[in-house]
Structures are given as C-alpha cells and as structure tokens.
C-alpha cells in the first residue's frame, strides 16, 4: 500500500524507486553496523570494564571501526589448502545476505519501508534463519575441526531457538490479526489498554512473556553470549569463522552486528510500538521523518539490552541450551499462544 503512495506522490518510475530504496539500504546497513559496533561493542563494553575503549582514531575513537575495516581489506585472502573453495567463499556472502534481506520488510514510517509484504513476519523469520545455512557452509568448507564443531553446533542450535522465536511471535500475530509488520504497528497504535488509548497498546504490555522469549531466542539467533556456542572463543577459538581472514571475516563481523540491529528493529516493531509516536495521526507524512528517529532510539534501547547481557553472562553448554529450550521456552511459548487465543476469543 505504502509503495503505491510513494510512487504516486513523487511520480517515480519503478526502477527509480527501486534504486533509491537500494541506495538507502546500502547506506543504512553499514551505518547501522558501524554505529552499533562503536557504541556498544567498543565503548559500552569498555565502560563496563573500567576501560576507555579506542581513543586515537577520530574523536573518542569513533572512526576505529572504519580503520579496522580498511585493515581487513588490506589483508591477504587465505584459503585453507583442504577447503572447499567455492563454498568457503560463498559462506560469508550468504550470512551477510540474510541480514540484508531482513531489512527489506522493516517499516520505519507510514511510507518509509522498502517492501511492505503481507507476510512480513513470516518472511523476516524465514530469512533470518538463512544465516545458519551460511554458518554451516563456513564450518563445513573450512576443513577445520574447530570450524566443523562450530558449524554443527549452529545447526543443532537452530531448532532449539527458532521454534520458540516463531512461537513467541505467534502471540503478537494473533493479537494484531495480521502477518504484515506495518499492520502490527497499526494495531499497536490504535489499540487501547483498558479504554485508555493515548499511547496505543505496545504489545510488550500484553505479550510480556512473548517479549522475553523473543529476546532470549534472538540472543541465540545472534550467537550472543549466553548462547554463543558456535563461536565460543575459548573453546572453539572462534568456531565457524576460525579460518577466515581479511574481508571475508569482515563480512561475518558486519553481518553479526547488522543482524543484531535488524533483530532489535524487529523487536521494536513487534513489541515496542514500532515507529509510531503517540499523539500523531497514523498516516501523518511527518512520521516518515520522525518515525525513523523514534525507531532508532528504540532499537538502540533493545540493542543495549542485548549487548549488556552479552558482556555480563557466561556461556551455556549446547545440551543445556537444548534442555532450556525444550523444557522451558517451548512449553512457555505454547502456553502463551493458548492464553492469547483464549483472550482473543473471549474479549
């Protein structure tokens, strides 16, 4: 719907609109990765450890990641002798593509969305699991035992967290009556809590259990610390990407941070009310400018929590994650769906 508006309002041809969207996406994703990487991975971690973090490149070290990226680009591209070269080369691209594709459906304003799919939630969750394929490819093709163990752990982990992730989102979908992310934002904007509708109804209030399960599963999906067994620096020395150097490693790194950004955005859209600002008309054009800012603030909040947990907690063991997922998360999310369904029917 929104793309029609944009095309109609500005009178752009399909190819022009597509190239604009592509250009914005190509700018937004690396910027997002840089911002998260600098703010949280470098600075926040440093402060949590009584350090200063990078200081020398740019003001307060803000250009450090760019310098790092340039360093990675200069490095030699090494393949292990026994590696399956094609798969080895393709793996980081697959991982990065999965996080790029995630950005396609994320709405940041009434019209500011790349592609407003009717099956947005379904698409986002499907595409995000693609990255595991890339991880498995990397682990297998590296011809290294550590990488293989990492890749297999990632694959084994997939089912343990993907299921609760989807089931947690189900509650939101039931409540919003739609798989369309834009419609989910609308449902939160127009909803009411006990007749008081000024701030809408962010689903974190009604779906708090779902939000917790979503955040825990997202932590696993992003291989962040309590569930970073596929990477596991101290056991598998980096797991699936142990054999990667130079810009291929850079791609893995960018994908990791960009996916964190995308998942924070997804959590914002699904549970925190998305880009809508209380008091504004849902379709007000000004929200195309203010919406992304509100989104960004909420995304940073969610990402802060993700990284905070990452810097604080130790890592679980693979079998403990499975036990936790199957004995706690999945029953809990199923119960959440049942309760949501009952309320939906009754109310």
């Amino acid at each position: 719907m929104s793309e029609l508006t944009l095309t109609g309002a500005l009178g752009l041809a399909y190819w022009a609109e597509t190239s604009i969207k592509l250009g914005v996406a190509l700018v937004v994703i690396p910027t997002a990765a840089l911002m998260l990487g600098y703010l949280f991975l470098l600075k926040m971690m440093a402060f949590m450890q009584s350090r200063l973090g990078p200081q020398d490149v740019g003001p307060s070290g803000s250009l450090q990641l760019i310098a790092d990226a340039i360093k990675f680009l200069q490095k030699e591209d090494i393949h292990p002798a026994a590696a399956d070269r094609r798969v080895f080369r393709a793996a980081p691209v697959v991982v990065l593509a999965s996080s790029f594709l995630l950005f396609v459906v994320l709405p940041t304003g009434p019209d500011a969305v790349v592609e407003n799919l009717d099956t947005g939630v379904f698409y986002a969750l499907a595409v995000s699991s693609l990255s595991v394929l890339g991880v498995l490819m990397a682990g297998w093709a590296s011809a290294s035992k550590y990488a293989l163990l990492g890749g297999l752990r990632a694959a084994g982990q997939l089912i343990a967290y993907e299921l609760p992730l989807i089931l947690a989102v189900m509650g939101v979908v039931i409540q919003a009556n739609s798989l369309n992310l834009q419609e989910i934002v609308r449902a939160q904007a127009t909803g009411e809590i006990f007749g008081f509708g000024f701030v809408g109804n962010p689903f974190i209030l009604t779906q708090f259990i779902g939000f917790l399960i979503f955040m825990i599963s997202a932590q696993a999906e992003l291989t962040q610390t309590p569930f970073d067994m596929p990477v596991a620096e101290t056991e598998l020395v980096g797991g699936f990407h142990v054999e990667y150097t130079g810009f291929r490693f850079l791609l893995f790194f960018m994908a990791e941070v960009a996916t964190t950004f995308a998942f924070s955005a997804l959590a914002t859209v699904l549970f925190l009310g998305g880009w809508w600002i209380p008091g504004f008309d849902f379709d007000a054009p000004i929200l195309n400018v203010l919406g992304p800012m509100v989104m960004l603030a909420k995304i940073l909040l969610v990402a802060f929590v993700i990284f905070w947990i990452r810097f604080t907690y130790p890592r679980l063991r693979e079998d403990q994650l499975q036990k936790f997922a199957w004995k706690v998360l999945i029953p809990l999310s199923l119960a959440n769906i049942v309760v949501t369904g009952i309320f939906k029917v009754v109310l």
């Binding site: 402060f47 949590m48 009584s50 350090r51 200063l52 905070w308």
Partner: peptide, 28 residues
C-alpha cells in the same frame, strides 16, 4: 556491569554527577 559502566562514565560526585568524564573514571 551497569554499576561499573556508570562509575566509569560518571565518576564525578555532587552537582557534576551527570557530566561524563570517562578519562577520570577509567583505570587505564
């Protein structure tokens, strides 16, 4: 971890608590 981050970022006391001064707060 949150307390350590706060101490590193805002080491000053009293009125100037909210001025971030990581240079003084960090131990490095």
């Amino acid at each position: 971890t949150a307390r350590t981050a706060a101490r590193t970022l805002f080491p000053k006391r009293g009125m100037r608590t909210l001025i971030p001064a990581p240079q003084q707060g960090s131990v490095t």
